[in-house]
């Protein structure tokens, strides 16, 4: 299994914006997608999301990009660390 991208990896800005839009829509967030700090933590502090939100994001991205995001993945703390990390994972694993 390849190591997930880190905050220093290059990520397609358009894809990152698209993922941000999915997050805002799926969670009914009261902020524009472009206001999500790509490097702020998604969980807890930062965007202030909780475990149900993370599951919701996993579901929406799995459906849209045809990839597997499993609740028992040992790398979840890295995959979901920030918008940038999540978009990098999507870019790497997407099948559509």
């Amino acid at each position: 299994m390849s190591a997930p991208n880190t905050a220093t990896s290059p990520v397609d800005p358009a894809l990152m914006q698209e993922v941000a839009q999915h997050i805002v829509a799926a969670l009914n967030l009261d902020l524009p997608a472009e206001d999500i700090d790509p490097d702020a933590p998604l969980y807890g502090e930062g965007l202030g999301l909780d475990s149900i939100d993370i599951l919701e994001i996993a579901l929406v991205l799995s459906k849209h990009y045809g990839l597997q995001l499993r609740s028992d993945d040992a790398n979840n703390h890295v995959i979901f660390r920030s918008l940038r990390d999540l978009a990098a994972y999507v870019g790497e694993k997407r099948t559509r």
Binding site: I52, L55, E56, L59, S62, K63
Partner: peptide, 11 residues
């Protein structure tokens, strides 16, 4: 087709 349910909907 994928039958995946939103955790928020389920909750």
């Amino acid at each position: 087709s994928d039958r995946l349910i939103s955790p928020t909907r389920f909750h």
